[in-house]
Simulated assay, not measured.
Amino acid sequence: MRLRRSPRRRAPETIVALIDVVFFLLVFFMLVGRLDATAPFEVTPPLATVGTDLPAGGVTVSVSETGALALDGRPVSRAALLAALRPRADAADGPPLVRINAHAAVALRVLLPLVTALEGIGMTTVVLVVTPNAA
Rank of each mutant, 00 (worst) to 15 (best):
L112N: 07
L47C: 02
L82T: 08
T116Y: 09
F28A: 14
I19M: 13
E65A: 15
R4G: 04
F24R: 15
V21T: 08
N101A: 13
A11L: 15
A37H: 05
G51S: 01
A84T: 07
E42S: 14
S6L: 14
L3E: 13
L31Y: 03
G33S: 09
G73H: 02
V59Q: 14
P12L: 00
F24Y: 05
A104S: 11
L54E: 11
R78M: 05
P132T: 01
V98P: 11
G51F: 00
G73L: 07
P132K: 11
L112Y: 02
V16N: 11
D53Q: 06
M1W: 10
P113E: 05
P87Y: 03
A80Q: 14
G57D: 05
G58D: 03
T52L: 14
V21H: 02
R88T: 12
F41K: 01
A102Y: 02
V115Q: 15
V27R: 12
A37C: 08
P96M: 12
A84C: 09
R78C: 00
L85E: 06
L114W: 03
T44Y: 06
T124H: 11
F41W: 06
I15F: 13
V98S: 13
V129N: 07
V76W: 00
R10G: 09
D36M: 12
V127D: 09
E119Y: 04
R8Q: 13
R74D: 05
A84G: 09
L31G: 08
V21C: 02
A92H: 09
L112M: 10
P46M: 02
V27K: 10
T131F: 03
R74T: 09
E119H: 10
L118P: 06
L108S: 13
L71T: 00
R78Y: 00
F28D: 05
R88D: 13
R4Q: 12
G57I: 04
A79K: 11
N101D: 15
G120W: 03
E13S: 07
S6T: 05
D72H: 02
A83N: 14
P7E: 06
L118E: 10
A80P: 03
A70C: 01
A105S: 13
N101L: 13
F29Q: 12
V21L: 10
E65M: 09
E13K: 09
A117M: 09
A11E: 14
E119M: 10
A17C: 07
L114C: 07
H103R: 13
V115N: 10
P40V: 05
A107N: 11
R34Y: 01
T60M: 09
V43K: 08
G58I: 03
R99V: 08
R34P: 00
T14D: 14
A80D: 11
M30N: 01
V63Y: 02
L71I: 06
